[in-house]
């Protein structure tokens, strides 16, 4: 029994750690897409900016807490920078520019070795409570910290989307003409949404760096963006609660497939593909029977008409 607990407990902790990071990451996208209708296909870029800025600041001698703040702010600033030229245009342009930006950024991370150590990645930065907490309790402490961060992000977002500010975002999501005719500066609201969503992704990046203790450009492939999309769509577009549940479901599914691994005649590589097929199947079934996602509201679905 004890042995069983010793094996299962760390395993569950790991799933929860990853899930909280991706929940924060996807909450940023949910603000942009779910509440504002912005199509960001390069969300992973802000995860990368957050992770690299945090790691590099800390390696440069900045205290860990400030490094995390720096990573968050830097990602938000890049969100602003990207939004200024694109958000005045039609929404499809944001999708194109963000996907391009995320790939360009990954190649910069890969090739500018003087700055990022390129493919060798960055490691050796501090861990939270590194000298305070004994090794065997480390992950559980990290989990408590991450859950606390998740709760703060979640409650902040809930407060925002239920405020008059959130009301304007929802009107922008549906029909920009209306808020404009009523005297709202639509561009400014879209920019704020993109910047905050990006900053939240940056925070998730900082969490990822702290958890992995090693980051390299390969960590930030385009597929990470689409994990966030899967999480948001699965949990329910424009539902922050749903986004957290979506992250839990996705990573539980990813991990659970490991248990059926021995019973299937697949190599590790095939298993990876098999997992994605399962996720895809699940999403298709969901879209057919409950297109608004688990916690989404059908009446508020952004793309239904």
């Amino acid at each position: 029994m004890i042995e069983y607990v010793c094996v299962v407990f760390p395993y569950v902790t790991t799933i929860l750690l990853i899930s909280t990071i991706y929940a924060v990451f996807a909450l940023g996208l949910n603000l942009e897409w779910g509440f504002t209708g912005l199509i960001n296909f390069g969300h992973v870029a802000f995860l990368a900016i957050g992770a690299y800025t945090t790691a590099m600041l800390n390696l440069g001698g900045c205290p860990l807490v400030l490094s995390v703040v720096g990573g968050t702010v830097m990602a938000g600033l890049f969100g602003l920078l990207l939004g200024i030229p694109t958000l005045r245009l039609r929404e499809d342009y944001l999708a194109i520019v963000t996907v391009g930006f995320s790939e360009v950024l990954r190649f910069i991370l890969l090739n500018e070795e003087w700055l990022t150590r390129g493919p060798f990645g960055i490691y050796g930065f501090d861990r939270p409570f590194q000298d305070v907490i004994p090794c065997q309790y480390y992950n559980i402490s990290l989990l408590i910290l991450f859950v606390a961060i998740l709760i703060i992000v979640y409650t902040s977002l809930e407060k925002l989307v239920h405020s008059p500010w959130g009301r304007v975002l929802k009107s922008v999501r549906e029909d920009e003409t209306v808020p404009a005719a009523l005297g709202k500066n639509v561009f400014s609201y879209k920019l704020q949404s993109l910047a905050i969503g990006s900053a939240i992704a940056g925070l998730a990046g900082a969490m990822l760096a702290l958890y992995l203790q090693y980051i390299d450009p390969g960590t930030f492939k385009p597929v990470e963006t689409f994990y966030a999309w899967i999480i948001v769509i699965l949990g329910g577009t424009a539902s922050n609660k749903g986004t957290i549940v979506g992250a839990l479901i996705l990573w539980t599914l990813f991990s659970a497939t490991k248990f059926i691994n021995p019973y299937l005649p697949f190599t590790a590589h095939q298993m990876g593909a098999f997992r994605m097929i399962m996720i895809g199947l699940l999403l298709m079934l969901l879209m057919m029977h409950k297109p608004e996602g688990i916690f989404g509201k059908k009446e508020e679905l952004a793309l239904s008409d």
Binding site: P164, R167, K170, S171, R173, E174, D175, V178, E299
Partner: peptide, 14 residues
């Protein structure tokens, strides 16, 4: 141009 995915009250409060 009613905002169909918001309630009538939210339409006005906007």
């Amino acid at each position: 141009h009613a905002l169909t995915k918001m309630t009538v009250l939210d339409n006005l409060m906007l």
